[in-house]
Computed example of a mutant assay.
Amino acid sequence: MAARLQDHYRKELAKELGEKLNTKNPHAIPQITKIVVSMGVGKAVQDQKILEEVSEHLSQLTGQRAAITRARKSVSQFKLREGLAIGCRVTLRGQRMYEFLDRLITLALPRVRDFRGVNPKAFDGRGNYSLGLGEQTVFPEIQADKIKTTQGMNIAICTSAGNDEGGKALLDAFKFPFRKDGAAK
Rank of each mutant, 00 (worst) to 15 (best):
L170S: 00
C88I: 01
A122P: 14
M39F: 10
L109P: 01
E56M: 12
D172N: 13
R70D: 09
G87W: 02
A122L: 09
V41H: 03
V54P: 08
L58D: 07
R93M: 00
P120D: 08
R116G: 09
L170Y: 07
E165R: 13
R103S: 12
V75K: 05
Y129A: 04
R70V: 06
I155A: 13
G87V: 06
L104M: 09
S160P: 13
L51P: 02
D114R: 06
D145N: 15
F78T: 03
A156V: 15
I50W: 01
L80E: 03
I155C: 12
S38R: 08
C88Q: 06
V54R: 00
K73D: 12
R126T: 15
S76L: 04
D124S: 09
E53F: 06
G127W: 02
R65C: 04
Q60A: 10
R81D: 03
K175A: 12
I147Q: 10
R96K: 08
N154G: 15
I142F: 12
R96S: 00
L58E: 06
R89S: 14
C158W: 11
F139E: 12
R93S: 07
G166N: 01
S59N: 14
I142K: 10
Q60W: 13
L58A: 00
I86D: 02
E165L: 14
L61N: 01
I68W: 04
N163V: 06
S38H: 14
E52Y: 00
A173G: 12
D114K: 03
A156L: 15
V54W: 05
E56N: 11
L92H: 00
Q95F: 11
I68Y: 06
R96L: 06
P120F: 08
Q48P: 02
T150H: 15
A156Y: 15
F123T: 07
I142R: 02
R111N: 12
H57F: 13
T106I: 15
M153A: 15
F174W: 01
Q60F: 10
P140Y: 15
E82S: 11
V90E: 03
G87I: 08
T62G: 04
S76N: 00
I155Q: 07
G117C: 11
